[in-house]
Design a protein around this nucleic acid. Structure first.
Lengths: 109, 109
DNA sequence: ACATCAACTTTGCCACACAAAGCTCTTTGC
DNA sequence: GCAAAGAGCTTTGTGTGGCAAAGTTGATGT
């Protein structure tokens, strides 16, 4: 009795897409982190155009999801946050890309 | 003085992506409508897996944005809603796809 | 000493996605 | 022929969440 819906449910890949990655700001951040492997908040802010507040909250969410790790240290007596993509984050990003690419192809009936 | 940001602002296509289309349910609906050119709510509900309530509110938003037109008539004494993608909707969808595809390529620095 | 700036975090608000309830007709028991 | 059920929606309610504004903490000018 698996699959309540009669049929055709294989035709909506977007229904359970990863909302955490789907948010544009976060997709940007993850993509950048994938490219550079490690970056500090100042760089991420510059490159993403986010404010400190938004960047901070997005990073917290990504960290809680286990998609990034953030190392906070003091660099010449100033706080400094370094972010890095985790394996889990990389895999989630890949999965997201697959689903999204498929959805962007459109449906040819 | 155009462009407050020093530079590099060409490197974030996602900042002003169309949020109306970015919503998965709506992207689905628009994609389906593009394929069939015209569909009723029952079909859209089946194919998208949305509830009546959600479909209704999403369609209202799409209509208000001018992305679809909805014609409501009585078919054998029952209400019947037919939706159709507008030119504006088709163009917006195309623009969305371009931005999103670019973003999914990732950033090679 | 006071203000300012850098690097954040926390709080507050507003929009919005989803669910639950409501609404209007029609059809189906009984 | 009348009540209950169902089809086809719309409206209301509610919780999540993104963004901005304010707050925090310490170092650095003046």
């Amino acid at each position: 009795m698996a699959g309540d819906e009669p049929q055709g449910d294989a035709f909506r890949p977007l229904t359970d897409i990863d909302r955490l990655i789907h948010e544009p700001a976060r997709l940007m951040i993850l993509s950048f982190l994938e490219a550079v492997d490690s970056a500090d908040y100042v760089f991420l802010m510059r490159v993403s155009g986010l404010t400190w507040g938004n960047l901070s909250s997005h990073m917290t969410k990504l960290e809680e999801a286990g998609y990034v790790t953030v190392k906070k240290e003091f660099l010449n007596k100033k706080p400094h946050s370094m972010a890095q993509l985790t394996l889990q984050g990389k895999q989630a990003l890949e999965a997201y890309r697959l689903v999204m690419k498929k959805a962007l192809e459109g449906y040819s009936l």
